[in-house]
Write a protein that binds this DNA or RNA. Structure first.
Lengths: 330, 330
DNA sequence: TTGTCTTCTGACAACGTTGTCACTTGTGTC
DNA sequence: GACACAAGTGACAACGTTGTCAGAAGACAA
């Protein structure tokens, strides 16, 4: 910047004004400064700028995802990015791998780089550690799952309602013995989905049968094994509800291997790429990650613009996509 | 930092030494400084640090992907992140959407934030604009596709060889009329894959038939339409090679709709989630995005560690995964 | 002419760090 | 006891910017 100022024969302050597009610089000087910048290949240093600026903004936000490569998380990432670019804000992303410790380390690394805001898909069981960030003025929005021991804006899917919708669909098709396969019960969303199953059965006056419920199924193989076992019982379910992505795939594999995929109904939570090309196509309760990410980013930027209203809790609705597997009759 | 120094009754320089883990500070002072930092909830400011540091490192790299939410790109992202975290480096990611202009804007935004290095999955047709970054000392690595008008380290898939392997597999199974469906020919990798098809047919002494080649198929629908049309000819192909992800899905849809999925062979480039659950399972030439990302990150960090050897060009091999669709006989 | 106001410009300090260098101890050697 | 040397510590400037404030130059009215 000093060199540009020297070449343009102005003070560095005037260069700063031009670079920041401030008004009150005569057109002739603006031209000279721009010409000098281009000739010297000058690039504005945002880190120095944010250090000096009164608001200290870095035009960067940090997001903690479960895994940047996981389809749900990366869809969140993309829709957050789309809102951010419109404001010239860049996104630092990191994967927590369902590990509270990595989540904390990422937040700390983001904080060291003075991000303007944080969006977190939480893994940790206790978010009181975020109090210091909050005190430093960093807005924080939680997506997909609520925080624990910490009050903050959230954007969540209505998990229980989505499951209830799917279970009701199965009941309406005449099913009474509906199996449930769920993810780790410690994950809040998984617990919510299981609650939806239990409540809908109760509402439909169908007696709960604990032999038809298997939780803590992490990954495709576990789910496949559990489904295979459940279908081998003397009174097997006539329909299955799978509470998560990979669990759905595992359940479908089990049905296929047992030759039951055209006889036992299946509904899964979360859409699956190519689900329409399978035989039968898999009926799912689809989340809307793009809407979740977009909403979260909008809430975050409103906070950055000074919105100090009480914490907001947004719910994004699910949608049932019928493709065949959920419409198999008992 | 000043406050911490005051509370610990030392100079701010000593606090700096402790924060950076420099040797030569007596244990008692280290304890006092750490205690004071914790009491004041002090957080090291990396932006100020990198501004002052002689090497100017920000412990942040920037990556330009085609789309952070696309499975191939996000797998790259994840494997780059895995290498970066080990060095305490964070990743700024952005999507170019196959648009050279967005690519340039992202690079410029990264440069303003003084990233230590760049990894680019290029969209632009001319990378000479990167000369100024190079001159500023920022190492740059290209992944998936080579740069144009610019010499830099690359990590690429051997596209042509992968396609040849698949086509050879079809020929060995007795096919002579093999259709080719490809992505935009302006994308270098797509052109390479098409070249592999042409060359392997020539090697196998099979005459090229231009009615069996359709390029510039962007997206599932286009591919589905082109495949449908090609299969309707008087002398239809007995096998199809699909040069890209979505093209494979489109081709499979067309085969299914025409009831030919058990009669016409299909091999696709790039693996597809759930391809094993379809009927038949789809045989693919699988890339290894994790290996590409890992290698690229390793090359980048070696450059950051001072490696000034001539530009390196790494090739990551493909793997054929047979699942049934490629083993259908004519 | 003088005074007042507006518009443009620049000098200087400061943001939170770290590199440089000089100073103060303490230890060991002759 | 004098001296050299190592280890620990701090004062100060500097990194590249922007906020503050003051001053110069010109326009206009009295």
């Amino acid at each position: 910047m000093r060199e540009v100022a020297a070449l343009a024969k102005v003070s560095i302050k005037t260069v700063s004004r031009v670079v920041n597009g401030e008004s009150g610089v005569s057109p002739s000087l603006v031209r000279r400064v721009i010409a000098a910048s281009e000739r010297l290949n000058y690039r504005h240093n945002l880190t120095a700028s944010s250090l000096r600026r009164s608001d200290g903004r870095s035009a960067t936000i940090g997001i903690v995802l479960e895994d940047v490569a996981n389809p749900f998380s990366s869809a969140l990432h993309r829709s957050i990015e789309d809102v951010a670019v419109q404001r010239g804000v860049l996104v630092l992303a990191g994967s927590s791998d369902e590990d509270g410790d990595r989540e904390r380390k990422l937040v700390s690394a983001f904080a060291s780089r003075r991000v303007d805001g944080l969006i977190i898909q939480p893994s940790s069981q206790d978010h009181s550690y975020l109090l210091s960030e909050r005190r430093a003025g960093t807005p924080i929005v939680f997506v997909d799952r609520p925080p624990a021991f910490f009050d903050a804006d959230t954007v969540l899917t209505d998990n229980a309602a989505g499951v209830r919708r799917g279970v009701r669909h199965l009941v309406q098709n005449g099913h009474r013995r509906i199996g449930y396969l769920g993810d780790l019960h410690t994950i809040v969303t998984a617990a919510e989905r299981h609650r939806g199953y239990v409540e809908e059965l109760a509402d439909q006056r169908i007696e709960a049968d604990e032999r038809l419920v298997r939780l803590d199924l992490r990954g495709i193989e576990r789910a496949e094994a559990a489904a295979t076992e459940m279908l081998g019982h003397s009174q097997p379910p006539t329909a299955l509800f799978a509470g998560q992505n990979l669990v759905t795939i595992g359940a479908f594999r089990a049905l296929r291997r047992l030759g039951l995929h055209q006889r036992v109904a299946l509904i899964g939570f979360d859409d699956i790429l190519l689900a329409d090309l399978l035989e039968p196509g898999i009926t799912v309760i689809a989340q809307d990650p793009a809407a979740i990410g977009r909403t979260a980013a909008q809430v975050l930027f409103r906070r950055l613009d000074g919105d100090e209203s009480p914490t907001q809790h947004h719910i994004v609705l699910t949608r049932m996509i019928t493709r065949g597997s959920g419409e198999i009759l008992p």
